[in-house]
Amino acid sequence: MSAKPNRFEKSVNIKNKKASFEFEFIDTYVAGLMLKGTEIKSIREGKVSLTEAYCVFHQGELYIRQMHISPYSMAASYNHDAVRERKLLLNKKELEKLETKSAEKGLAIIPVRIFINDRGKAKMEIALAKGKKLHDKRQDLKEKDAKRELQRMAFD
Rank of each mutant, 00 (worst) to 15 (best):
I126N: 01
N91A: 13
I114M: 11
A127L: 03
E99W: 03
Y63S: 00
Q59I: 02
A146Y: 07
I114P: 05
Q151F: 08
C55P: 02
A53Y: 02
Y63G: 00
K144Y: 03
H68K: 13
H80K: 14
K105M: 11
Q66A: 15
I40M: 06
H68T: 11
I116W: 02
Y78C: 08
A82Q: 15
F8V: 11
K4C: 08
L95V: 07
A31L: 02
K87S: 02
D118P: 05
I116P: 00
E45S: 15
G60P: 06
L98Y: 00
Q139D: 12
C55F: 02
D81S: 14
H68L: 12
A3H: 10
V56H: 08
T38D: 11
D145G: 06
L95E: 09
E22W: 01
N16M: 01
R138C: 06
L62H: 03
D81C: 15
K41L: 12
F23I: 06
A75V: 14
N16R: 01
D27C: 06
E39G: 09
N117Q: 08
D27V: 05
K147N: 05
N79P: 07
K15M: 12
F8N: 14
R7F: 14
L141T: 12
R84L: 07
E104V: 08
C55T: 03
A122F: 04
R148K: 15
S20P: 04
Y29G: 01
E24T: 11
K147A: 09
K87H: 07
A127M: 02
Y72A: 01
E22K: 04
A154C: 07
L107M: 03
A122V: 12
K36F: 07
A146F: 13
R148Y: 15
N16Q: 04
A82W: 08
I43K: 00
D118G: 10
L150P: 00
E61N: 10
R7G: 06
E39I: 05
Y29A: 02
M74T: 03
T100S: 08
E39N: 13
I109E: 00
R138E: 15
I126L: 06
P71C: 08
M1C: 09
A75I: 14
L62N: 00
I43G: 00
P111D: 04
K93S: 12
K133I: 04
K92Q: 14
K92F: 14
S73E: 12
S70M: 12
E22T: 05
L141N: 11
Y63N: 00
R44V: 05
L62I: 09
G37A: 14
L89I: 15
F57G: 02
E143H: 13
I110A: 02
L62Y: 01
R138D: 13
K93P: 01
E125S: 07
Q59D: 07
K10E: 11
V83M: 10
D81W: 12
Y72C: 03
K123F: 01
G131T: 04
G46Q: 13
V48P: 02
K144F: 05
F8K: 15
N6W: 08
S70D: 11
S49Q: 03
G32C: 04
L98D: 00
N91Y: 09
R65A: 02
K18V: 03
P71D: 03
R84C: 09
V30F: 00
P111N: 05
H68S: 15
L134K: 09
N117G: 10
S70L: 05
L150G: 09
H80T: 10
M153W: 05
T51S: 15
A53E: 06
D156W: 07
L88K: 00
D27M: 06
